[in-house]
Write a protein that binds this DNA or RNA. Structure first.
Ligand SMILES: [Mn+2]
Ligand SMILES: [Mn+2]
Length: 940
DNA sequence: GCCCGCA
DNA sequence: TGCGGGCAACGCGAT
DNA sequence: ATCGCG
């Protein structure tokens, strides 16, 4: 039986998509040949470019009446040295090979499909042999397509892809058709469809695939062509049509040349002679949910990037150009390429305002890519879009209308190197149209600015931002009980079906309802109440209130900010119940990717990457006099603590709340524990960025991980803006007040980075986190720690041991702040791998439970930049509230478990200690040497 | 635990 | 006023 | 290509 097409047919709804329905592979209309090869006909070959969730190329070869298919994420390469991953996917009907068009949202594989190449293929050894080769996992063949020719190999790798997908590799054979990837990228050189007129290649027109896919519908692209047609400068065009007639506009009427002359001494109306300030605060946009009426606004695309201010001053001693973040951090060093371009603007002095972005392969600004570019120190990948010029050549232009400032800026940028510096255009469309286009293109939103406004530092209403919200239907699978005075229910539990028919949990929505809606929705919920949990897997969240299930038949339309990578919606807001669509058809809709923003718009701005907390370094240094200074060990529980209490000068709310049911420990006990160990603990926290595990209710309830300062919520912690680009400041806990303050805020665990804030790129320690298979006895852990120590010692490194407070031990290696993150990480990986290689019965260097059966996982991954490990003396949010405790090596053998000490009993140990078991830690001066690396290398 | 957005 | 949601992100390894 | 884990 040939059932290979069943899956394909099941995944699609044929009444709803323009794709061909598969006829049975072998059952054909009368008169048609049984199979092509039987008749000696050539076998067809096709590559379809499929712009689905992920852009990929479907590589298909006809054999035995169907199309064998692989998804090749990166497409084919003519370079024999380049292997391209090809994920084996289900067979497709032969007819599908000529399909080109849109697969509507909601259908499997939604997105656009074009036939990128087609022709015939010829298996080496003939068709009969091909079936065997295919089964054996190695196909050699020749292609006769319009784009691809010559010999190719598809080989099944030993690797396995996700699901039950086989991983194959697509490789060009060495022959006359082969080309070096670096000198000929066929995907770039021959984009587009080989069918019909959309083959831009035919005309030799250079078009990116993303642009060709989306250009047709975006207002932005129209904007560009309009601007292009209208003249050299769209900014100029804009101002000439929009200038306020009451104010004679000396800028609007000028051409570029004339504007540049004007720029040399911009003493125009509104400009004031002024010295160039040394610091400058940017103007920020206010979030609004609807565009204001009227045409006084011009719009720009909101970039998902990082706000930068450039200061140019040729009179300055030192370098003329400096680049600052919004918070005023000097990031000049990260923008070496851009600095050169700034120098070439021919400006004497200025403040320039813009946004740094990295465009992803689709031409969409991508914040993650930007971070990567910073991390990898690749300034050449970064493009700075400039949109304003508040100071120029001795004049303060903040009083000059926006349009005129921008016209001058644009003129100045006429000849700039646009690979690193660009002018960000504006669009004179209706905000609605532009926003829709922007959202279509998976951009974040748009920025509106009053045409006639001056430049106002800080948050203001003359700049606004309109954000894209996603919107789609969800299946309601349950609801949580209301709390307080809320009626009916708290939130709806949402789900979407996947292609296999599983209803996957997709988060919850608890807002957007008014009282009437709550009531009417509840009525529906009650009508469909069930004991049966409808999701494929129980949602793994911990709900604040109990949940109830309903049959998965109700459909809720919601809007939301975005999907998380876990398939959960963020910031969902209820819109309405829908009964026009069967629940079974509700699937995750993915926004269309693509749209080369750079080509289509040249546009830009935004106020800042992500929300960033307001600046504040709180007065943690104001030492509270007397009683609360040094930790006076207050070990025992306070017998009766009348709420609210005060500890170390910090008010403690709900002191008597039980936070650990298993031990009965109360919030005040944890707070007092931290107060009592502050003296011991603070040296481990000081100046070290910290992530917090917080449990505001109790450790059995909702836990969350906090890496950045949340607005100003935790009192007394120190904030470090700029260390983690694009995020609110990182936090350090440097004082007892901060420590207790954090505990007051529900912090249970403190996890520290392997570097200090003052030298964030140079880790000062490496950590080996020994994680045991649950089945192993503690002796094995002791032995493992000692073996780890021996190896390190052998290499010449002194190490220190502490309990984890949970199940294992940590071995910590102090290092001089010398090597970078990568080097330390690579070294620690080498150590872990060496251990796994020499004692494979004892150690594994691979994470994952199945790699650790009867073994101990040497977790070196804690040594990544931004990773953290639970700090010494931190409690753990687990039953019993274990504590991570530093040990002398000669004590290790006598330990009984990773959670041997708890917030309850640690004081006993501390009271008995004669000296700090880690007394030598601070004195240890050592670094990773080439010799050490070599020994590890040679050994393995 | 607290800030924010929404009713 | 009171409620609910957010409060990390990234590498690794499996399938 | 995507999921789950830590
Ligand atoms: Mn596909
Ligand atoms: Mn561990």
């Amino acid at each position: 039986m040939n059932d290979r097409l069943d899956l394909y047919n099941r995944k699609r709804r044929f009444d709803d998509t323009p794709e061909p329905a598969g006829t049975r592979a072998r059952r054909k209309p009368a008169g048609r040949k049984t199979t092509r090869q039987a008749a000696g006909e050539a076998l067809s070959y096709v590559i379809q470019e499929h712009d689905a969730r992920r852009l990929h190329y479907d590589f298909r070869l006809e054999l035995n009446g169907t199309l064998l298919s692989w998804a090749v994420p990166k497409g084919p390469s003519l370079d024999p040295s380049v292997k391209r991953l090809a994920v084996h996917v289900e067979d497709h009907p032969v007819e599908y090979g000529s399909f080109e068009g849109e697969i509507p949202p909601g259908n499997y594989g939604a997105g656009s499909v074009i036939v990128w190449d087609r022709g015939t293929w010829e298996p080496v050894g003939g068709a009969a042999e091909a079936a065997r080769s295919y089964a054996a996992g190695k196909l050699k063949f020749h292609l006769h397509g319009e784009k691809l020719h010559g010999g190719w190999t598809l080989v099944r790798s030993h690797m396995r892809g996700s699901g039950d997908k086989e991983q194959w590799l697509l490789i060009k054979e060495r022959d006359d058709e082969a080309r070096d990837e670096s000198d000929y990228d066929i995907l770039k050189k021959r984009p587009g469809s080989v069918l019909s007129g959309s083959a831009s290649v035919a005309k030799g027109e250079k078009t990116t695939t993303a642009a060709s896919k989306t250009a047709r519908k975006t207002a932005a692209s129209d904007a560009k062509s309009t601007a292009k047609r209208g003249g050299k400068s769209s900014a100029k065009a804009a101002s000439s049509t929009r200038a306020d007639p009451r104010r004679p506009d000396i800028v609007a009427t000028r051409n570029t040349q004339s504007l540049r002359e004007l720029a040399a001494t911009p003493s125009i109306e509104g400009a004031v002679k002024a010295r160039l300030p040394t610091t400058f605060k940017p103007q920020l946009a206010t979030l609004v949910d609807a565009a204001p009426p009227g045409d006084e606004w011009s719009y720009e695309i909101k970039f998902d990037g990082y706000r930068v201010l450039a200061r140019i001053d040729r009179d300055a001693k030192g370098s003329a150009v400096k680049v600052f973040t919004r918070a005023g951090n000097d990031w000049t060093a990260k923008f070496s390429k851009q600095v050169k371009a700034f120098e070439q603007l021919g400006i004497e002095s200025a403040w320039l305002d813009g946004e740094a972005v990295v465009l992803d392969p689709n031409g969409v600004p991508n914040f993650q890519a930007l971070q990567n570019a910073f991390d990898a120190n690749r300034p050449q990948d970064i493009i700075v879009y400039l949109f304003d010029i508040p100071f120029l050549n001795g004049y303060d232009l903040r009083g000059v209308p926006l349009e005129q400032r921008r016209a001058i800026l644009h003129a100045l940028m006429e000849d700039v190197d646009d690979s690193v510096l660009r002018f960000s255009n504006n669009f004179d469309f209706s905000a609605e149209d532009l926003l829709r286009s922007a959202c279509d293109m998976a951009l974040e939103g748009i920025i509106g600015k009053r045409r006639d406004s001056g430049y106002l530092s800080g948050r203001s209403s003359t700049w606004i931002k309109l954000k894209c919200r996603r919107r789609q239907e969800f299946v309601i699978g349950g609801y949580s009980e209301p709390s307080g005075s809320r009626a009916a229910f708290g939130a709806l539990l949402l789900g979407v079906y996947d292609s296999k028919g599983n209803l996957n949990y997709a988060g919850r929505v608890g807002t957007g309802f008014d009282a009437a809606l709550l009531r009417s929705v509840k009525k529906e919920l009650d009508a469909h109440a069930t004991k049966r949990m409808p999701f494929a897997a129980v949602p793994r969240e911990r709900s604040r209130t109990p949940v109830h299930w309903v049959e998965p038949v109700l459909v809720a339309e919601c809007n939301f900010a975005e999907w998380t990578s876990d398939g959960i919606v963020r910031q969902a807001s209820f819109v309405s119940l829908r009964n026009d669509k069967p629940a079974r058809q509700i699937v995750k809709e993915t926004p269309r990717q693509g749209a080369d923003v750079q080509q289509q718009t040249d546009s830009i701005s935004d106020d800042a990457p992500k929300k960033r907390a307001a600046r504040k370094t709180s007065g943690s240094n104001v030492a509270a006099a007397g009683k609360t200074t040094a930790a006076k060990p207050k070990t025992a529980k306070s017998p009766t603590t009348a709420p609210p209490a005060e500890v170390a000068g910090v008010r403690i709310s709900h002191p008597d709340r039980v936070i650990d049911k298993s031990s009965g420990a109360r919030k005040i006990d944890l707070v007092q524990y931290y107060e009592s160990v502050a003296e011991w603990m603070l040296p481990h926290l000081k100046d070290r960025p910290v992530s917090l595990v917080r449990a505001p209710e109790d450790i059995g309830g909702e836990l969350f991980f906090q890496k950045h300062s949340q607005k100003l919520s935790i009192p007394n912690v120190t904030q470090h803006p700029g260390l983690d680009p694009g995020h609110p400041p990182l936090i350090t806990v440097d004082t007892i007040k901060a420590l207790v303050g954090a505990a007051q805020m529900g912090t249970v665990e403190f996890h520290t980075w392997n570097a200090v804030a003052s030298n964030i790129e140079k880790p000062d320690r490496a950590v080996f986190d020994l994680d045991p298979d649950a089945a192993l006895g503690w002796e094995r852990m002791i032995e493992a720690a000692q073996l780890t120590r021996s190896l390190l010692e052998e290499l010449g490194l002194t190490s220190f041991c502490k309990t984890s407070g949970g199940k294992g031990l940590h071995v910590v290696v102090p290092l001089a702040k010398q090597a970078g993150w990568d080097e330390v990480k690579d070294f620690s990986q080498a150590v872990a791998q060496h251990m796994a290689a020499t004692l494979p019965k004892y150690f594994s260097a691979k994470m994952g439970a199945q790699n650790r059966k009867q073994k101990i996982f040497v977790d070196y991954l804690r040594n990544n930049r931004g990773s953290s490990t639970v700090a010494a003396f931190s409690a753990r949010a687990r039953p019993g509230l274990g504590v991570s405790v530093p040990l002398a090596w000669d004590e290790v053998a006598g330990t009984t478990g990773g959670d041997q000490w708890t917030i309850e009993n640690l004081h006993e140990r501390l009271a008995e200690l004669k000296s700090d078991p880690w007394a030598d830690y601070a004195k240890t001066r050592q670094r990773i040497t080439a010799a050490m690396k070599k020994r590890l290398n040679d050994a393995q």
